[in-house]
Design a protein around this nucleic acid. Structure first.
Length: 553
RNA sequence: UGGCUGAUGGUGUAACGGUAGCACAAGUGAUUUUGGUUCAUUCAGUUAAGGUUCGAAUCCUUAUCGGCCAACCA
């Protein structure tokens, strides 16, 4: 009965479907190639969903390959975090590989190029090499070492490997074209000397291949059919193809898409590392970070992140995705799955004068109205309660639906109360509210006939449990710091990105929540029980507020 | 001033020569024991100018505006 809807494909899917049409019976192979020099962030999530999503959809498989060709910045800690994050996101790789697995192959490839007269050892300093490289508008000049004999190149390269020369004294370069309009092709450096300890190969090597001499060949060795990367690698594709062609190896193909940007945050590993190192955040997994581990700690779910990546799509144009869409995906998922509990973030006390002193009633309340299988729980009610201070106004405008002096309001799951008197301190601030309740207004069996405009949450004072609550907000105070290139992005860190509340009264059921669990604090937002929770000291992170602004009065 | 790449509502993304659609955001209304959810509804777009065509977001030309490229980083 439904219309035959033709699913719309992104341009990468079109390329894949086209490939499959031309290669019947074969399957695609993709790879996710992180450099282990930082934690994965939301931009990587997009790439992960793309690469793994493609092979989930079309068959074939995806490898995880660490691009570990620079020993000075790469660490095992990052390898572990990356694997953990990918698994948490819900994806499985076929093979776990490392570019460093291929150091021998790459070394042999280099010798092949030398023998073909397509690579040479250059003794120039890095300054000289930069100088002779020219500029985008000015062609480069040949290195004086460019015409070295093949045998001499072979010998020198061998001795570079043997460790005979200090760091930075020699490099191996491809012999291509110093006047190529694409600067990447102006005799790119293939190997450099770095007497550094590698996280996997230890001290086996003192020469390491550059990205351009490792990535394409690694793809080729793994027979990657579709090597998907971001737009800034477009100029590198010419060199990618050049290496594969001259080495006569499996012709992997590179395709580029535009990296996804999110407003009010940054996704630059360099800048993220700066935030961590300089202590602007508590670590890579600080809930304000756009890292996968940060979002996880904040309470975002893997399903929400996957859905977000699906919704923002894949294209080639520059983009800054609205954070509101990510939050929408988070709320959409959490709304269906989280239990509703009560916590009073900014409490004022209410005494119900006509409710027996010392009496406790257990009231039944449903856990999640969006999930009929979620059941219900009992919450204790007494004559002394906390309510949210913003839920009371002495004199209120017409549109104010909550408690006012002389007005009525419903306590969620309990009774209707009326505020009879405000008891003030000597400084004029509110000490507590004297209220009366309607005994026949009990939730679910209300015969009072009192019409109330609003329902508010509450916690019984004698039964309350204390918690620390961390209110997180957007990391930056401007949507796009790149609009201010003269300024340091750290100047834009939102000073209110974290507000910590101590001794927040929460209902007793909260004490049984396990770290990592997300619940909704009724009317206040979604909150995730933090890993710092221990020995009965509860800590909650605000994952997201509820949608819409409560009108401010 | 070189090369590469891109341009569709506020944001993101479709439409592949034939009705510019979807989602988010924003607004309005209904429902609601969460000012949540849900439902209904409104606002709002093809960078510009030419050309080809019965017909152009789509093809061609020119212009304009963005992004990337001069690490022994990836």
């Amino acid at each position: 009965m439904s219309e035959p809807t033709t699913e719309s494909l992104n341009f990468i899917e079109e390329i894949v479907e086209d490939w499959m049409g031309k290669n019947p019976g074969e399957h695609i192979i993709t790879r996710f190639p992180p450099e282990p020099n930082g934690y994965l962030h939301i931009g990587h999530a997009s790439s992960i969903c793309l690469n793994f999503g493609l092979t989930n959809k079309y068959g074939g498989y995806t490898n995880l390959r660490f691009d570990d060709t620079n020993p000075t910045t790469e660490e095992t800690e990052y390898v572990e975090s990356i694997k953990n994050d990918i698994k948490w996101l819900g994806f499985d790789w076929k093979n776990e590989y490392y570019a460093s697995d291929y150091f021998n192959n790459l070394y042999e490839f280099a010798k092949i190029l030398i023998q073909k007269g397509l690579a040479y050892v250059d003794d120039s300093s890095s300054e000289t090499i930069a100088q002779l490289k020219g500029t985008p508008t000015k062609p480069g000049e040949n290195s004086p070492f460019r015409e070295r004999a093949i045998a001499e190149n072979l010998d020198l390269f061998e001795r570079m490997k043997l460790g005979e020369f200090p760091d930075g004294t020699r490099v191996l370069r491809a012999k291509i074209d110093m006047s190529n309009p694409n600067m990447i092709m102006r005799d790119p450096i293939l190997y450099r000397i770095k007497k550094a300890h590698h996280h996997r190969t230890g001290d086996d090597w003192c020469i390491y291949p550059m990205y351009d001499f490792a990535h394409g060949q690694s793809d080729s060795i793994e027979k990657i059919t579709h090597s998907i990367c971001t737009m800034e690698f477009i100029p590198h594709r010419e060199l990618y193809d050049w290496c594969i062609e001259n080495l006569e190896i499996f012709p992997s193909k590179q395709y580029e898409f535009a990296r996804r940007n999110l407003n009010y945050t940054i996704t630059s590993k360099r800048k993220l590392l700066q935030l961590v190192n300089e202590g602007h955040v508590s670590g890579w997994d600080d809930p304000r970070m756009p890292t996968i581990s940060g979002m996880r700690r904040r309470g975002y779910t893997a399903a929400a992140i996957r859905n977000f990546c699906d919704k923002i799509g894949i294209a080639k144009r520059d983009n800054i995705v609205d954070m509101a869409l990510l939050e929408f995906c988070v709320r959409e998922d959490l709304n269906k799955s989280t239990d509703r509990l009560m916590a009073v973030l900014d409490p004022i006390k209410v005494v119900i004068t006509n409710y027996p002193e010392g009496k406790t009633e257990q009231l039944a309340i449903e856990n999640n109205p969006e999930d009929e299988n979620s059941g219900s729980r009992a919450i204790p009610f007494s004559n002394t309660l906390y309510i949210e201070s913003e839920d009371f106004m002495e004199e209120a405008p017409k549109k104010y639906f909550r408690l006012t002096l002389g007005g009525y309001v419903r306590l969620k799951g309990a009774y209707i109360i009326k505020c009879d008197e405000i008891v003030k301190k000597s400084d004029g601030s509110i000490d507590y509210l004297k209220c009366s309740y309607a005994e026949n207004s009990k939730s679910g069996q209300d015969t009072s006939g009192i019409a109330v405009k609003g329902t508010i949450h509450w916690v019984s004072v004698p039964h309350a449990v204390q918690a620390e609550v961390r209110l997180y907000d957007r990391l930056l105070s401007v949507p796009d710091p790149s609009e201010f290139p003269e300024q340091d992005f750290k100047d834009f860190i939102n000073p209110n990105s974290l507000v910590t509340l101590k001794n927040v009264p929460v209902e007793p059921a909260m004490a049984n929540i396990q770290p990592g669990t997300v619940v909704q604090f009724m009317r206040k937002g979604y909150f995730c029980c933090d890993l710092d929770t221990k020995d009965g000291q509860l800590v909650f992170n605000r994952t997201a507020t509820l949608k819409g602004d409560m009108p401010k009065f």
